[in-house]
Design a protein around this nucleic acid. Structure first.
Length: 706
RNA sequence: GCCGGUGUAGCUCAGUGGUAGAGCAACGGUUUCGUAAACCGUAGGUCGUCGGUUCAAUCCCGACCACCGGCUCCA
């Protein structure tokens, strides 16, 4: 019950982000004797949930100047906090992409009101120009130091340092911290005007929700005030691109937590335009790639998800089932038999009871009376077996049943079933986030059933489809995350098919290399049924999202007993590729809104063209209406604004509504058979013959120009 | 789900222990103008919901709901 090594002291990154590094030997942690000697309370912390890899000392030595500065700031922050709240317990203070943080445990609840005080104290620390002094300690010395101060989180962290790695302390002024560095030379190297405290948050110790929650103070630092101000301005600009803000401004979508429910997006007419344009793009692309479309219901019986393996493991992420009292034939017979059996017993017992004397036959009377009571209770118990239906959280099982609905031959493969399927996932309340994380989502889904021989070609084609889409949308910053299995966990976390794992992973890797794609490989993160590729993108407000996924599945088709008749007249199980290049409408459109800042290309723009007249002169309005009608006849989303308001006001309205193309028409244009073209955000680009302007618009839409 | 914060008109925000305002948007008029905002007027709110304290609550207290910032999670 004391210490259970090494699980209590797993490998863990003590100061920073996960990073690629060499696998580390298991960490021994402090010995139980040591812990005893210093009178520590046996730690009851949970391990980190995912293996986080420590940075090697070499990697630390190579970090850039800014990270060094920020990491030093984390120490300065902790120095200041300890001066203000001496009882604070320390955890860790790494640098991050945007700044730094430090985790504390203390009674006082931090609030942004504390920031001026904290920043002031940090400024003092920089003015004191303390040296960051490094010293090497033995494990025992380090443990004694932190145990003596009651710094229990630090004691835990000590256990993360692998045997053989030096244990170093850094001291600035009175503040001493376990730290592998590196730092700037002196606190005076940090310009106080370049520091800013950002937010207070909470974080579980070691990222495990079973551990205590610490208070995390986020800050950022730059080498001077100018750089800091620049960053602050950029953050403010990014906030204006927030899809939640633009979505409301443009009338794209809405949430109605009161009547519809949290996380359930309503697509307004203008947002629906985006949905349908994306679907059109997907349908065209998939048609050309040889996909066929299917339609499936939004729910299925419990058996479906028992078979697929999603229950009970994913039940928490699914909406609770609907329970129906309907029985099928066999169940009904069973139930009826059971009930008539109970009725018979009831009759028997009551007859016997009526024959017994309550006093003379007291023992028997009581016994029968008890039996009767119990039978009657059983009869009252609504033991009606129910049929459970679940809203589908994924489409694959339905597609598998479509595969199973008809006999399949190798000649039918590859079979590519595509559907914009609606899925329902019961995301935790704190996880909902605008359109990016919702509870009802429309997935650009398809399942490709193929033979092992066809696999590489199919996978390559899917990959090409991703690249095609990225080009259309001008998505340049993305990363493909290739998740593979861990051979040590075959048969546990991953299906025990070592050869298939190796074969498919090799094929996937080769496709990635051949395509010259930017990717990272992460071990141990594959789906249980096969390796996968996730595409990560970064939204304008800096959040990272998985926007698309592509997974290999060589397990679930077998669970459903899917087979095809092969050339040699035997039945074989197909491989399955799950793919969703456009992810879900919700997340993809959320991303596109931020990507384009609401300024969509013409083919996507909810209002593509607005025709504005200079005045409401009848002849002019007729001319304008004819243009509007011609565009509309060609399926252009066009509106007219023919009133008497000043043209400046009309233009302002159209610009604010982010109308892509404005056709401004006055007497001069009418006489010349022309229109003046103005593009949103780009201003007036001059007059053009009417026919030419219309042809341009149609071509831009047809070609889905950027 | 957890920690913290927020909740006033469609939007952005004022405001007070004695039942509420502004600008923009909307609506009705007027305005006939060449590339980002013409003028006048009208209407609009159970101050998130429920409970408590009080003579009196939008304001103070509590619970709940939703949203926001994180954490955890994300098939």
């Amino acid at each position: 019950m004391l210490l259970n090594f090494p699980s209590l002291f797993p490998m863990q990154n003590d100061e920073s982000q996960p990073d690629e590094s060499q696998p580390q030997p298991p960490n021994p942690g402090p010995s139980p004797e040591l812990v005893n000697r210093y009178g520590l309370v046996p730690p009851d912390f949970e391990a980190a949930k995912t293996d986080v890899q420590r940075k090697t000392l070499d990697q630390r030595a190579q970090i850039d100047e800014l990270a060094r500065l920020r990491h030093s700031c984390a120490h300065i922050l902790a120095t200041a906090v300890l001066r203000l709240w001496p009882d604070a317990l320390l955890d860790i203070g790494p640098w991050t992409e945007d700044g730094f943080y430090y985790d504390f445990d203390l009674k006082h609840r931090f609030s942004p009101d504390d920031f001026p005080k904290i920043e002031e104290e940090m400024r003092k620390v920089t003015k004191e120009n303390q040296v960051f002094e490094k010293s090497i300690k033995t494990r025992e010395e380090a443990l004694a130091y932190f145990a003596g101060k009651g710094q229990k989180f630090k004691v835990e962290r000590l256990g993360d340092i692998p045997e053989g790695e030096v244990i170093s302390f850094y001291q600035n002024g009175e503040f001493v911290d376990l730290c592998a560095g590196p730092h700037v030379m002196r606190t005076g190297n940090v310009k106080p005007s370049g520091i800013k405290m950002l937010k207070v948050a909470s974080a579980y110790f070691r990222g495990n929700e079973k551990n205590p929650q610490l208070q995390r103070l986020y800050g950022t630092a730059f080498k001077n005030k100018e750089e800091l101000d620049k960053w602050v301005t950029m953050q403010e600009e990014a906030k204006k691109r927030d899809h939640r803000k633009i979505g409301a401004e443009m009338g794209l979508f809405a949430f109605d937590a009161e009547y519809v429910g949290p996380g359930l997006a309503l697509w307004l007419p203008k947002g629906t335009v985006l949905v349908e344009e994306l679907e059109r793009l997907a349908k065209e692309t998939e048609f050309q790639a040889g996909y066929v479309r299917v339609k499936t219901p939004h729910l299925a019986k419990e058996k479906m998800y028992k078979t697929s393996g999603h229950l009970p493991y994913y039940a928490d992420s699914m909406f609770p089932p609907m329970e129906l009292g309907e029985l099928d034939g066999e169940e009904r017979q069973q139930l009826e038999a059971e009930i008539s059996n109970l009725r018979a017993k009831e009759a028997m017992h009551s007859f016997e009871l009526s024959q017994l004397h309550p006093v003379n036959d007291i023992a028997r009377f009581l016994s029968v009376s008890d039996s009767l009571k119990s039978v009657r209770q059983d009869l009252e118990k609504p033991k009606m077996p129910v049929t459970r239906y679940y809203l589908k959280a994924m489409n694959c099982p339905h597609h598998h049943r479509i595969f199973a609905a008809e006999p399949r031959s190798y000649r039918d493969l590859p079979l590519r079933l595509a559907e914009y399927g609606t899925n329902y996932r019961y995301e935790q309340s704190g996880e909902l986030f605008g359109l990016m994380r919702v509870r009802a989502l429309n997935m650009n889904d398809a399942h490709l059933y193929c033979t092992a021989e066809q696999f590489a070609e199919e996978f390559r084609a899917v990959n090409d489809m991703y690249l095609k889409y990225f080009k259309i949308f001008g998505i340049e910053k993305y990363q493909m995350r290739f998740s593979t299995h861990d051979p040590a966990r075959l048969g546990q976390k991953f299906v025990n098919e070592p050869e298939l794992w190796k074969k498919t992973e090799d094929m996937v890797r080769q496709v990635l290399i051949d395509s010259g794609i930017n990717y990272v490989e992460v071990a141990n993160e594959a789906a249980f049924y096969g390796p996968k590729i996730d595409v990560q993108v970064w939204s304008a407000i800096g959040r990272e999202f998985t926007i698309a996924t592509n997974q290999v599945d060589f397990a679930v088709p077998a669970r459903f007993g899917l087979t095809y008749r092969d050339r040699d007249n035997t039945d074989k199980t197909p491989l399955c590729i799950h793919r969703a290049p456009l992810g879900t409408h919700e997340r993809f459109i959320g991303f596109l809104i931020e990507h384009y800042a609401g300024n969509f290309p013409l083919w996507l723009a909810p209002e593509q063209v607005r025709v504005l007249t200079l005045n409401d002169d009848a002849a002019l309005v007729d001319y304008a209406k004819a243009i509007t009608a011609e565009l509309r006849a060609n399926f252009v989303r066009v509106e007219g604004d023919y009133g008497a308001d000043p043209v400046k006001a009309k233009i302002s309205d159209a610009e604010h509504a982010r109308v892509h193309t404005m056709l401004v028409i006055g007497g001069r244009d009418m006489e010349a058979g022309a229109v003046s073209v103005r593009l949103h955000g780009k201003g007036n680009i001059g007059a053009k013959p009417k026919a030419e302007a219309i042809a341009d618009i149609l071509a831009s839409i047809r070609e889905r120009r950027a």
